[in-house]
Design a protein around this nucleic acid. Structure first.
Length: 278
DNA sequence: ATCCAGGTCGGTC
DNA sequence: GACCGACATGGA
């Protein structure tokens, strides 16, 4: 649970303690406690509503062991899977996922988190919870009417017009996330790439984390490095070639393999797997 | 000071 | 199509 929430899929969950995370889903604040076996949750909801919301978010209906077996196609990925055991792909709100990953380009996770936090404070709805104030993620219609300079003031840099542009495209219906959710991977990919600030890599993150397209294989700098090292004898390879290789090598759920490699590479940066991956 | 971070865009060739 | 520099920001 903690690894999943810290794996760079989501940007506004915070660690409250060694085994405790806190974050906002829709209009509710959730505090999650990881026990040896059980996950305990608190929120301003009935216990059944909490269960159903979290069950949806963590995709409990998915047979994770079966999916992990399906991408476990060689000893290298096998070691990455072992090193990141329990990792899942979340079911995020598509708009939040889209806007968040537009902010991710040529950026680092710490700063992305800060930008999104400021975005929510400025344009989200306030939620009062346990004497503290939290914020929802602003909907497209809350961002479509602002000037990009407002986001520049929040430190968005050159991404400011992308976020506002995407909000306008979604708000106007030019980009229909509901329609995209029903398209097969390749078509959804083409459509979503018509969005401002969404290129080959961001689109795969949004499809994987926001639309449950497990055949998406986002190639960022980390994945580029680790894939090159493990499968291309350290030679430079175009991202498109890495993607098609991954799809063929890991299969229809290659997005899971991507997440294991990303998390393993980030968790064990210096080892670069030689110690972790035998 | 230079490099890097979950890259994309608009211009060239 | 494929290459290429510019693009904001902040931490190392």
């Amino acid at each position: 649970m903690i690894a999943t929430l810290e794996s760079g899929q989501v940007f506004r969950w915070k660690k409250q303690g060694p085994v405790q995370m806190r974050g906002v889903l829709d209009h509710c604040v959730f505090t999650l406690h990881q026990g040896p076996l059980l996950l305990c949750a608190e929120a301003n909801l009935s216990s059944s509503a909490i269960r159903s919301k979290l069950s949806d978010f963590f995709r409990d209906e998915t047979d994770w062991p079966a999916l992990w077996r399906s991408v476990d196609t060689d000893p290298q990925i096998g070691a990455a899977i072992s090193a990141t055991r329990g990792l899942r792909i979340l079911r995020q709100d598509p708009w939040e996922c889209l806007a968040s990953f537009i902010c991710s380009s040529n950026n680092n996770i710490r700063r992305i988190e800060g930008m999104i936090d400021r975005l929510c404070r400025a344009y989200g709805e306030a939620i009062s919870h346990g004497g503290e104030i939290f914020f929802t993620f602003p909907r497209p219609e809350h961002l479509s009417c602002i000037h990009p300079d407002e986001l520049r003031k929040l430190g968005f840099g050159y991404r400011a017009p992308y976020v506002v542009g995407a909000a306008r495209q979604v708000d106007s219906g030019e980009i229909d996330l509901g329609v995209i959710a029903r398209l097969p991977y390749e078509e959804a990919r083409e459509r979503l790439m018509q969005t401002q600030g969404v290129g080959e890599k961001v689109v795969d993150c949004v499809l994987l984390f926001g639309f449950g397209q497990f055949e998406a294989f986002p190639v960022d700098v980390w994945i580029d490095r680790v894939m090159r090292k493990l499968y291309f004898r350290n030679r430079r390879v175009p991202a498109a070639k890495i993607r098609t290789f991954a799809r063929r090598h890991f299969g229809a759920y290659c997005g899971l393999a991507q997440q294991a490699l990303f998390h393993a590479a980030r968790t064990f940066p210096t080892l670069t797997f030689s110690g972790v991956l035998k």
